[in-house]
Amino acid sequence: MSTLVGTHSEDLPEHAHAPAHEHRDDTAAKIGMWLFLFTELMLFGILFLVYAVYRSIYSEDFHHAALELNVALGSFNTFVLLTSSMTMAMSIAALQKRDKNLSMVLLLATIVLGALFMVNKYFEWGAKIHHGLYPASEHMRTLPHGEQLFYGLYYTMTGLHGLHVLAGMGLLSLMLYFVVRDKIRPDRHVMLENSGLYWHLVDLIWIFLLPLFYVTT
């Protein structure tokens, strides 16, 4: 039975007679994950809309404010996150090729790269806050409205993205545990694939954040 349903069978009647708790449909799990990713796109999509509105109103201020951001650090973080997406994809491929150890190593590498991204983010935010560039600070109140909004959006959007990186790291840690305990196996790895999809989404959002905030000028 398990081999039957493990082959992405489109043929529902084959396992329609199993009791509900044994019902397993990998395609359904993937559709569900994609729908969840749509909700994430809408969540960030609205923030990009807000960004577009204020950038069109305050384009000059946005230009000035963006000069303050550290392009080198942003680019390095982009490199880190892109690499982590690669290790994520390789981890799934390794598991499909029944190399459990390699899969675990690559998954761990993904989590570590995620952590490295967050550490960089911490120093980046820390430096800004040290210079008094944070919402409602005294220094901020002396800046033009457009620059204040730029930083408001910067903290909101990179902050929400950071939360997603943290959530992704938690999720991947859980997946690592499942791989170790053989709950995720070469013949049932849809959970790992779905987690990978989530990780790629987090990556994708960053790909848009980088040009909009760091290299916009």
């Binding site: 729908l35 749509f38 909700t39 994430e40 809408m42 969540l43 960030f44 609205i46 923030l47 807000v50 204020y54 919402p135 409602a136 409205h145 204040q148 909004l149 408001g152 959006l153 903290y155 909101t156």
Partner: peptide
């Protein structure tokens, strides 16, 4: 439900953030 609800989610989140730390949006 799937496509529209996240929009109000982020909108409410922005107001909560606005009340907490004055981001200004």
């Amino acid at each position: 439900q799937v496509i529209a609800t996240p929009v109000v989610g982020i909108t409410l989140a922005l107001v909560m953030l606005e009340r907490a730390i004055d981001v200004g949006i």
